[in-house]
Design a protein around this nucleic acid. Sequence first.
DNA 1: GCCGTTTTCGGCCCGACTGTTTTCAGTCG
Length: 573
Amino acid sequence: MQNGAIAAQFEELAELLEIQGANPFRVRAYRNAARAILDSTESIAAAADSIAKLREFPGIGEDLAKKIQVLVQTGSIPQLAELREQVPAGVVAMLRVPGLGPKKVFALFQEHGIRSLDELRLAAEQNRIAGIKGFGKKTQDAILKGLEVAESAGRRVYLSEAKQVAEQIAEDLRSVPGVAQLEVAGSCRRRKETCGDLDLLAEASQPDAIMDRLAGHRLVEAIIARGDTKMSVRLFKGLQLDLRVVPAESFGAALQYFTGSKEHNVVLRRRAQDMDLKLNEWGLFRGEQMVAGRTEQEVYAALGLPVFPPEIRENRTEFALAEQGPLPRLVELDDIRGDLHMHTTASDGSASILEMAEAAKSRGREYIAITDHSKRVSMANGLDAPRLLAHWKAIDEAQKSIKGIRILKGIECDILEDATLDLPDDVLEQADWVIAVLHYGLQQPREQIMKRLMCAITNPHVDIIGHPTGRLVDRRKPADIDFDVFLDACAKHRVMVEINANPARLDLDDIHAAAAKKRGIPIVISTDAHGFADMDLMQFGVFQARRAGLTRDDIANTLPVDAFLERLRQAKG
DNA sequence: GCCGTTTTCGGCCCGACTGTTTTCAGTCG
């Protein structure tokens, strides 16, 4: 059983307990455990043979360790099954309606027998909600509006989209008179894979002016709330944006606070408490006296901490890192010298070899690899051996006509469902760079998936495994990979792993990239560009690498081309 | 339900906004 599946059960348990009005700290304990399990690079199921081993995970004590054992052995938790009997799934779904929390949902269910989103809509339409104690006309209207949000699945948007929208609105609001500072905060600033909402923070002399501008912004569809310092609006697709306005002396504290994560902030708060201080979005206080708040740097320094890059503010490893000394310098976009995964018109790309090379050069890349699809991907016009050999000749020709960038002859070679490669060894050995990937049969059982990966890793001509899991963020599940075995094999056979920078892939994810680093496996960040514009996606791969805590030394395509090729030769030797 | 070099009991981060309230609970982040 995978960590994600175990965590999901505890998360569901937390929701069900919360609806039933359980002790909030008990609910939190389940949530904390779910998160710790999700964040761990180690397999919980593998540790389930021993209570002591399980208890080493943060937030897992005697009781939860036992529940995990039962879950791994039998596939279910009896308590969860019992709770599901008591509270229908439709009731849990009602939690996704903005404005409805566990207390209101429980009241609707228990006292008025409303058991699903459909029944909730009917009740609201028939004006049956407004009379209920604790509910009124406004709540009823809010429910009708909120149902759309809940049913549009409360979907998170990709970081690429969130970042673009947030930065656009931020830019528009910066021109409002009296706005001294304005920053994007929240999960967007932390560069999470997806954002559930957007957070903007402003220092402004006239809050009303900036709120008026936001209210009239072309991207704003509705106003959810507006107070003296805080305003919430709804954008397209139900996406919410929160704007906070604070004075200059609080800007740093507020930026820190609204960047989060929540878990990171909880640790800071406790640390402040231990120092007889109090931290909130207005500043760091000793009694009534403000100690810090103007800048993030000031706040962290007063707590005896470095300014953590936003990408690692997740209460995973950052506090332990800070204990060990200065924080490592995380990889940056400017460190990237090569882009080793891209397509041309030979398969499903939209530009020629030379056009791609020119575009890469203009973005400061010193080398690229042209890696069109192999024949199995027939929909993408994948290349068979004769076409590939001809394509490589064309690459040699293109190289002659462009200076200042090195073009490597590569291939994105499919690992077929029967655990063989899509091209023969005598072809692959002529390549400068071979990416092996799973495209089809991602739902095969773990055994077969691992057989396929091992076939690629042990092939002497394969340099790297591209987008290893095949997952699409929020859309397609990853292949069932035993990561311990997979990464150990990559390390042993000196095969690199990719962080695919496409915002829909971001594969490997941060957790597994960190696990690869731990084993010393070189990681390559690639755009998988199918046209020029895609080359700008490199930043999203870099964000993912930063979230994994990776430095320049962990990323092979930060090397100059000769050093990179030398490393490749050594790996093959 | 977890956790502990002040503690094995009694804590567990903190504030803004809304609605239905006559002084605050619920929700949200």
